Amino acid sequence: NPRFLGFEGGVGAKNRLVAGTATYAVVYNGDALKAADENKNVGFVVPKEGAALFLDNLAIPARAPNPQAAHQFINFILDARIGAQLSNFNRYATPNKAALPFINPADRKNPAIYPDAATMAKLEFVLDLGRDTRLYDEVWTAVKSR
């Protein structure tokens, strides 16, 4: 295919979709929603086979110079209204049940942000395979080099 230019993910791929220089891209759902806002010809789908599920987390390193400030920041983010404000801005689902009433109603109904149970059943976390992770690296490197 003459339009096949290889693999690029993330924001770069999202920008190619918006510009019309890519037909398909693997991007996070929030980036896909931003792309759809910028170009009405762009949409988001979960492949029928499923996809990777991700989540962000907040952690405090064991040797953090100010763990008290880190705890305060985490508590700030976990405040229901603050967490909802963050999710309403970045268009990613909130993991905070207390924040749900403050989520934009249209986003709350958007399956690209809050998938239904059938879609969730097709999503899985990418697990750390220890030493066998190198097999993923080898295959991915081969795919990207084409």
Rank of each mutant, 00 (worst) to 15 (best):
I60D: 08
A99M: 00
Q85S: 12
I77K: 06
N57P: 14
L33M: 04
I113L: 04
A112R: 00
R134L: 14
D37P: 01
N90D: 07
P115S: 12
P65N: 11
A51F: 05
F4P: 02
R146T: 03
A59D: 12
E49S: 15
L58M: 14
G130S: 08
K122P: 12
N57E: 15
G9P: 04
P111F: 08
N66L: 06
V26A: 12
P105M: 04
A98M: 12
T133V: 12
E8N: 10
E49F: 15
K144I: 01
R134C: 13
I60K: 10
E38P: 06
R146V: 02
T133P: 08
I82L: 12
R91G: 00
F73D: 03
A121Y: 14
G130M: 05
K34W: 00
E124G: 07
I60W: 11
V139P: 02
G20D: 11
T21N: 15
A19Q: 07
A59T: 12
L53Q: 07
L123E: 01
E138H: 13
L17D: 00
Q72E: 15
V45Q: 11
S87K: 00
A13L: 04
W140H: 05
G12E: 13
H71Y: 11
A93N: 01
V46R: 05
V143C: 02
F102Q: 06
L135Q: 08
N57I: 15
F76E: 07
A84K: 08
